[in-house]
């Protein structure tokens, strides 16, 4: 039981907890824009962080090709980190542009700017 393995296991566990909260949030929140925040928990806390955790786990064990596994999960994690916000932004932009979601925001500066 070395320190890398322990750290990786902790990160993967955190990922599981974040996924649970993200799922509850997706069910509980009222509309698309608020649900996006729950989805962010699912992608960053629930996908990217456990992927880094898997990299540490693989480095901490003694399996063959462990560097390949660790490297692949690290790169996948980084690509997730880059791509997830782009996807969220694109979704929110499309939803706002087409007025597809009915909601009552406290303020909406973008709508004022578009007028």
């Amino acid at each position: 039981m070395n320190i890398l393995f322990l750290l990786g296991a902790i990160l993967v566990t955190i990922g599981g907890i974040c996924d649970l909260f993200g799922a509850i949030g997706l069910l509980k929140f009222p509309n698309f824009y608020v649900r996006l925040h729950a989805a962010t928990i699912g992608t960053i806390g629930g996908a990217a962080i456990p992927l880094f955790g898997v990299a540490l786990l693989a480095l901490g064990t003694n399996i063959p090709h462990k560097h390949a596994i660790a490297g692949a999960s690290l790169i996948t994690g980084i690509i997730t980190l880059l791509a997830a916000p782009a996807g969220a932004t694109a979704l929110a932009y499309a939803a706002h542009k087409t007025n597809a979601v009915e909601w009552k925001p406290k303020i909406d500066h973008l709508k004022e700017a578009r007028k």
Binding site: H37, A38, I41, I44, L81, P85, T89, H96
Partner: peptide, 15 residues
């Protein structure tokens, strides 16, 4: 800046 904002839960950049 925009991606950091979007990646922290609670804030999503729209445009």
């Amino acid at each position: 800046v925009a991606n950091s904002i979007t990646n922290t839960p609670g804030t999503v950049v729209v445009d």
